[in-house]
Simulated scan of single mutants.
Amino acid sequence: MSAHEIAPTALSSSHADDFQGRTRSVDLAGVRVAEFAMSPVTGTRTPTHIRRHDPDVYQLFLVHDGPVRLEQRRTDSVLEAGDFSLFSTSHPYFTTFADIGALTRLTILFLPGEALPLPRGTLERLLAHQLPARTGTGAILARYLTGLHEHAAGCDPADLPRLGAIGLDLAATFLAGRLGTANLLTPETRRRTLAARIDAFIDRHLGDPDLDPAAIAARHHISVRTLHLLFQDRAETVSATVRRRRLERARADLADPRLRDQPIGEVGLRWGFRTAAEFSRAFRNAYGMSPRDHRQHALNS
């Protein structure tokens, strides 16, 4: 599993007799995302391994269960859940996954060395460092990685290169922010990263009835015209995006048995509709039935 998914690496484990490991990956046309879960293990990549095969890839990984120890280029870090770290297949490294009584989970974003718009010498200052990712671009990148496997199967194959470009842009922006080299990013990388931030902002604020293009633009310090330009290559406008996502959340709540006793109007209000009548009208226009009919059908089927 390791040699195929990461690079040739010597593995050892105190759980050799009952070792468990699983992985799944998504190829995004030049960028790859893999999710791992495994028993406690120690991995060592030596100069001999590198001479045998070096894919020349940076691996930005997100720890879901810690602690994980990583050592590379004289930097030694202990990572906890929610931390990122970066390592390179072109240098020896050592890593240990602690025994937490369950499989340790992490997600790795594989980034070809030539794809990142940052100088290698500068980028390698981050190798094996603990990179917390609970706010800002790091939080958006973490959400992108964890959500990708949940939804990739339902994506049109033609969308995968675009998803890969978004992942690369988010990673480059996150790393550049840690290095203080955001000025090295291309205008297209900055544009796509801004669009990803706006998408995340919309999702977090769907319950705000005042969420509209003007509010979204003001929060991101851009004009409404610039906001609309960011959405011009999408199938729907900013307002249509907000309305669709609100309706999707409300529709899911109406089908949730745990919420069967919650008044329908309250469901609409929770997701940003100002009145029950407005919610009912928008729901019927989108789905061809009333919220009440949808709830009855979903809960009785």
Rank of each mutant, 00 (worst) to 15 (best):
G164P: 03
G154T: 07
V57N: 11
R284N: 12
P132D: 07
L170D: 04
R105V: 07
F283I: 11
L127E: 09
L116S: 04
M38E: 12
L206D: 04
P257Y: 08
L206Y: 04
D56I: 07
D65P: 07
L106I: 14
F110L: 15
G207V: 07
A10D: 14
E236H: 11
A158D: 03
P92E: 04
P119S: 09
R244S: 14
L247M: 06
C155Q: 13
L106M: 13
V31A: 04
P213V: 13
S77R: 03
G268D: 03
E188I: 15
P55T: 03
C155K: 08
R32C: 06
P47H: 05
W271V: 02
S13N: 04
L145C: 06
H49W: 06
M1W: 13
R281N: 10
V57E: 13
R245S: 10
G164R: 02
A133Y: 09
G138P: 06
G272M: 04
D18M: 08
L247G: 02
T122M: 13
F87Q: 08
T9I: 01
L60C: 00
L229R: 09
S39P: 10
R162Q: 09
S90M: 13
F87H: 13
S239Y: 06
R270W: 00
R134E: 05
P161F: 00
L168I: 09
G138C: 01
H91S: 14
A255F: 04
A214E: 12
P209S: 03
F273S: 03
R295Q: 04
R225N: 12
A196K: 11
L123W: 05
L79D: 05
R125D: 12
Y93Q: 11
F36H: 11
L111M: 06
T193R: 15
A240V: 05
R120S: 13
H151F: 10
A215P: 07
T275V: 09
G113W: 06
H64N: 11
F174C: 10
R270E: 00
P40T: 00
Q262I: 13
T23F: 09
R125Y: 14
D233K: 10
G121N: 08
G138Y: 02
E5H: 10
V26F: 05
L254G: 06
